[in-house]
Design a protein around this nucleic acid. Sequence first.
DNA 1: CATAATTTTTAGTCATGGCTAAAAATTGTA
DNA 2: TACAATTTTTAGCCATGACTAAAAATTATG
Lengths: 233, 233
Amino acid sequence: MTKNYVHATENPLTPAHEDYLKAIYLLAADGEPVSNSALAQHMGFAAASATNMVKKLAELHLVTHEPYRGVELTDMGRQVALEVLRHHRLIELFLHETLDMSWDRVHEEADKLEHVISEAMEDAMAAVLGNPTIDPHGDPIPSKEGHIDKTPGFLLTSAPIGETLRLIRVLTQDPDRLCYLGSLGLYPDTPVILRERAPFNGPLLLEVQGQPHALAFEMAEQLQVVVTEPTPA
Amino acid sequence: MTKNYVHATENPLTPAHEDYLKAIYLLAADGEPVSNSALAQHMGFAAASATNMVKKLAELHLVTHEPYRGVELTDMGRQVALEVLRHHRLIELFLHETLDMSWDRVHEEADKLEHVISEAMEDAMAAVLGNPTIDPHGDPIPSKEGHIDKTPGFLLTSAPIGETLRLIRVLTQDPDRLCYLGSLGLYPDTPVILRERAPFNGPLLLEVQGQPHALAFEMAEQLQVVVTEPTPA
DNA sequence: CATAATTTTTAGTCATGGCTAAAAATTGTA
DNA sequence: TACAATTTTTAGCCATGACTAAAAATTATG
Ligand SMILES: [Mn+2]
Ligand SMILES: [Mn+2]
Ligand SMILES: [Mn+2]
Ligand SMILES: [Mn+2]
């Protein structure tokens, strides 16, 4: 009989649409509308290009756009963004775990694959990985239903001295930085002790697996940690 | 000092270029030039679209094109086609083996992924799979260097009666047909005995794992087999 | 508050890769 | 060989999604 969907409008979303929606989602972490310039810069495109796509996304009811004010995702747009992000992070983890690719290479690959995989492949990867919720950088993987965990903790730059911390998330995606962090053993779940903090945004002295390391302030800002409770019993 | 390549021209090949080259390779199995109409039909595009792309490929020295005569791959073009085909078939096998996707679904997925994966991912898949040379349908996987095995044997429609055969390759990619063949247990490497051949291109009576099956002539034309030597000792 | 600086939007261009319709070339047939 | 049918090419159109340059709106400053 009549179709049981509200308004099919078919899904003509291209990789370009998806990338813009993902960018808007990531830039709106604070809940504020996203400025056109921030969006354009994040995409690496001219401002006019962003304006152009934003208008299309608004027509598709994926964003709301008050001219000169900024862009915000609608529920539908957020749903799409989260699905793309789920693809991206599942793929990163899959490449790392199953294909043994180093954590500094998976981001670039996932940025291309995220637009291309089928639901069947998404599900197959999730199954093989045991329905994971965290990617190799500690980024939360949205669930199939669009739920996403908020990462707890704080930046290493504001961590207490002397306590045993646990690194839980690395915010940079830059291959060179990730490579460097890897060489220090700084992967998610690694225990870290902050020994000293040099003044004037100077380096931080860390202890990682018994080894002392001096880490640039700018790097430490990219590391999210929690305080490890002394494991009882 | 001077760059040590002949003519870099950088590689601006899009998925469209790659798909056309792959199509030309597959259609030229007999060594004959490929007609514009055959190419267009294979791609599912209008003839004018094929002419258009063929001209571009000729400018890039990937094909030779004598107007009204047909298209042929150059060595460079064949190299590209074989690399895309390697991607395609490696991906099919990987999806089937590692992600446990059924053999009737992997073709469509591979058709999208083949243009997107990096060399690193290609190599990682090949390594995990043990440098395979055959995909889930029995299609040969070109080597990294562009070598490809010729499939031995002949079509089931011209196989001898009563002998033990081995299915080595399934030529259709159609999901429904593959699904059906799978339900009969007709996967590559399966032993088969041809019991009877009905006249006028009628059905073939097969024995597969002890079970008798009647198979349409049109289906049998898609199955490549070899005669199994009586295993000595 | 007037004006300068910045941001955003509009207007118009371009390459890509489809399309249709018509012209040209080739091939088949009487 | 003449002419019809088929194939191929040409010509021109369109959507997508970049771009630049200029206009318009907003925000900052003296
Ligand atoms: Mn992307
Ligand atoms: Mn990540
Ligand atoms: Mn393809
Ligand atoms: Mn195959």
